[in-house]
Design a protein around this nucleic acid. Structure first.
Lengths: 188, 188
DNA sequence: CGTCTCGTTGAGAGTTTTCAATGTAAGTGG
DNA sequence: CCACTTACATTGAAAACTCTCAACGAGACG
């Protein structure tokens, strides 16, 4: 249940046995069925969610009712409306499961407590955010620089399995293009 | 010289007098003339740069020789090729001054030392990255969701002074659109 | 004064979207 | 197990948006 989490943590920091025993106390396990909502825009996002198994998507819905996916998160990823979580504002993101999933929830008070009681977690989150920043930076450059085709090919290169696992229509939304465009790219 | 930095730090953490006296030792001051390069793609980015006065831009150059600005940084902003800085890879970003500027450079070894000697800096950077993540997320959504006009208006709303200070051609590059398109948006 | 940077405008070209129709696979209830 | 619905992918044609290229004008600066 916590194996995936420990594995992620230990890629960035080292944990004592004491830490390992203590960490689960801060989390709450939750199971989501495919399509089940975790967060709705307008609510307050009170948790960080770590994906143990399955996959989730976070997205906005624009005034025309169109979904725009901001993140696809599978095993080992964190997903949340950070802005809402951090500053107690209303969320603008929806988050739901695109597969049956098991997630670990970290509430804000537990998050803050965890940073204090397991100081290396402060470091873990700094590094996590640091790396996420880099990824987002690259995505932003890619989004502003490349054509639909280049963006799609670049994504396949980064996550070769993604087209097996994630429906094309969601990939399209994630890249900010249409599923028809992807069809045409694949055709050549 | 360090006033801007202290101000930024104290928005997120509190500093003792001892901290304040110690912090400058980790930084190196540098002056850049307008157009002067701080970092070139292909080099190793060995510092984080904090902008005390002036303004810088970070950007990639694509195979057609076109600049794509990833960040516009003025007083109080940090700028760097984080990926290169963190993982000792070659930088893909260029960074140069768009105004005469004074910057504070933090080398990697000093960065790591600073996090140890002034533990609240670990917290500062976690919060900084956390907030940057939120900003980048919003930019990414905006970039994938909105038309050129919506992106431009949204930017003006966030930074009303930006069009006074930053040439339109750089704003265009930052938004991933052309300066001609901005001209047409302004015309109505 | 000449050069360089920056912004504006016009016309045509290119990319991607939109809308609509069709096909296929998967999931659900009788 | 079949019939029906739903989800997802493909294809075509027209429309929309933005870019490209080119010309021109204004202001800054040496």
């Amino acid at each position: 249940m916590f194996d995936e989490l420990y594995q992620q943590l230990e890629e960035k920091i080292s944990l004592s046995e004491k830490d390992k025993n203590c960490i689960p106390n801060f989390f709450e396990t939750k199971f989501l069925r495919k399509k089940q909502l975790l967060l709705q825009a307008g609510e307050y996002c009170r948790t960080l969610a770590f994906v143990s198994t399955g996959a989730l998507k976070s997205y906005t819905i624009d005034e025309k009712g169109i979904e725009h996916i901001s993140l696809l998160a599978w095993e080992g990823w964190w997903v949340s409306d950070f802005k809402s979580f951090i500053s107690d504002e209303k969320a603008i993101l929806f988050i739901d499961a695109i597969e049956d999933s098991e997630i670990l929830l970290l509430s804000k008070s537990n998050y803050e407590q965890l940073l204090i009681e397991v100081p290396s977690m402060e470091r873990y989150f700094r590094i996590l955010y640091q790396n996420s920043l880099v990824t987002k930076d690259r995505r932003l450059i890619s989004s502003n620089t490349y054509t639909a085709e280049e963006k799609y090919n670049h994504l396949l290169k980064m996550y070769p399995f993604i087209s097996q696992r994630i429906p094309q229509i969601l990939i399209a939304s994630y890249l900010g293009i249409t599923t028809e465009t992807i069809s045409r790219i694949k055709k050549g």
